[in-house]
Design a protein around this nucleic acid. Sequence first.
DNA 1: TCGGCGTACTGTATCGATACAGAAGGGTTC
DNA 2: GAACCCTTCTGTATCGATACAGTACGCCGA
Lengths: 356, 356
Amino acid sequence: MAATLQTIADELGVSRSTVSNAYSRPDQLSPELRARILEAAERLGYPGPNPTARSLRRGKVNAIGVLLTDDLSMAFTDPYAVAYLRGLAEAASARETSLLLLNLPEDEEAVRRVVSNAAVDAFCLYCVPDWHGALELIRSRGVPIVIGEDPAAFGPEAGYVGIDERAAARRLGEHIARLGHRDIAVVAHWIVHGGVTGPVDADPDALRYYVTGERVRGFRDAFAAAGLPWERVLLINAARNGREEGAAAAAHALDRLDRATAILTTSDVLALGVLDALRVRGLRPGRDVSVTGFDDIPEAEPAGLTTIRQPSVERGRLAGEILLDPPEDPRRRRLTLPVSLVVRATTGPKPLKEKP
Amino acid sequence: MAATLQTIADELGVSRSTVSNAYSRPDQLSPELRARILEAAERLGYPGPNPTARSLRRGKVNAIGVLLTDDLSMAFTDPYAVAYLRGLAEAASARETSLLLLNLPEDEEAVRRVVSNAAVDAFCLYCVPDWHGALELIRSRGVPIVIGEDPAAFGPEAGYVGIDERAAARRLGEHIARLGHRDIAVVAHWIVHGGVTGPVDADPDALRYYVTGERVRGFRDAFAAAGLPWERVLLINAARNGREEGAAAAAHALDRLDRATAILTTSDVLALGVLDALRVRGLRPGRDVSVTGFDDIPEAEPAGLTTIRQPSVERGRLAGEILLDPPEDPRRRRLTLPVSLVVRATTGPKPLKEKP
DNA sequence: TCGGCGTACTGTATCGATACAGAAGGGTTC
DNA sequence: GAACCCTTCTGTATCGATACAGTACGCCGA
């Protein structure tokens, strides 16, 4: 049987409390006794206080739960998500807290078990589709929550660190409209839950995934203000937020007679895929076709991508801080961070000559 | 005060055990009573059995610890690492187990606290430098371990899933030697702990980071067999395993009169950086300079990179399976997986004409 | 000589659950 | 109608630690 505090205590004829203090509160006992205790522990193969028992007694586990949907790869492959996670990990690490990655299974009952078995002090939600059943489970856990997307997904008791997605997208749309483009395609991911990559006919007001919904609505706002009816816009669903999907989606906008002269996307990753598609077809970004992204990931600059710069690492870091050191003032637990429009080479005026 | 099992039990006048069974063993009580219990729980705001208490009693927490060094970004940015982590997460998820990411702080004492506070059933080690002090702490935790690199880092009680790094590297070296190259540079990461990117004079037998050491020794084996003394090889340290470092390291091999005609690297990420450096200088990969990588990450194929293909996802998945479903047969807990040499366009015969 | 105080250690209650042996009651079998 | 079984629920011991109040003792100053 594995050694416990009591084993050591019995061995030395001291009380269990004293052995506990040797580990957790060294100032509470004489250095000599502490040394004897640690020596005995070493000798008896005692691995130190059991973390679970300690957590139970202290009521704190030093861990933050992070939900990942089945498509785990995305959370690690999308540079925006990686940056966010890095910021979160930094904030956690500074407070000696770890991240518990909950990779949610398909089976609903299994999801329930995983979420309710997770020993965490708080949850941080990002990149989780709003429709996912785990959200309700998390709410019922009754632990602090910070969300990174839809500010209305939980009540005001939940923290929130986000950006004004719609206004940001609108700035991209205005930029494109101002350049004179009228034949526009929008490539957006997760328009349809479980759908395939390809054109869809969807009402922007009915999109369920918050981030995509807001960004698409922002585009529409800009076009409407420029006198461009939404019906003229070709909306294309990307099944995943991936570069390949971006390229595949772009094909639907490029391989037709009334080729779009501008393609707006809901993420830089998709936009890079669109650029790939242009390259394959010998089209020049910013001359033949304008392309915009969203996020300003590191790869965006070398690609010359026009995009919205948002503070990805900062979002994660602030989320962690709100969870671990909650500000007194409730207003400081719900933050909307500023973004900026970064105009680079992939956008330019609508080309003069008609398509060949 | 928060509700517990006892709260519900008192409310309904049943025993605590029965309430527990309502959650954990529904077959142990009548459906009617169970419904009443769940209703009362809902009404009293009981969030379900406390995961920490449950873990203490059950002696299992359903979590695997994963160590990440301060350079957390690498673990997420290096596609090999991402693939490994994905495999691990898949295996864990299939068993309703989560991953606890331990982002180790700089401070040694804090590392101790983080590691010994981590509530996990097992540890999986990958991409952790052999010299890191946390290794000893983990060993003393006495939980199952699987390592992904140096099979000798722990005793035979630890599981191991790896490849024959040295033999794999040797195949790359032989490929390059067979093509006639004599002016060779090797770009390797973490040759020097905390060092800068640039040429180093290091004895391959003395390299501390296992993966780099084995791969460099494999290169040397091949060169030696081809009658190429190690002294002729330019060894360049990359401070991190990153694309930028690959490019910076390559500069040291390219911007000199006796330019290398072949650059071998210890990872695809570094090799992609080397290719960047070639491009900037107008040099043709496989014609003017041959380049090899290691890992065969997804980006390697479009780049035409000659490399070693290794089963990254599989390594992670098997590691997870060994931890969670340990095979009876000890030999099946220590696996060396096969790799293959993938020859693509970035390697070719040594150019005939001398450097311009 | 005694109150007061600091240091070093002890003892008990507690954190919130699960395991397991057992009891009550009803039904079946021969 | 005794023996047995099944279902449904109970009660106690236990998982391994920490919190906190309490005790013992030495030392100091008045």
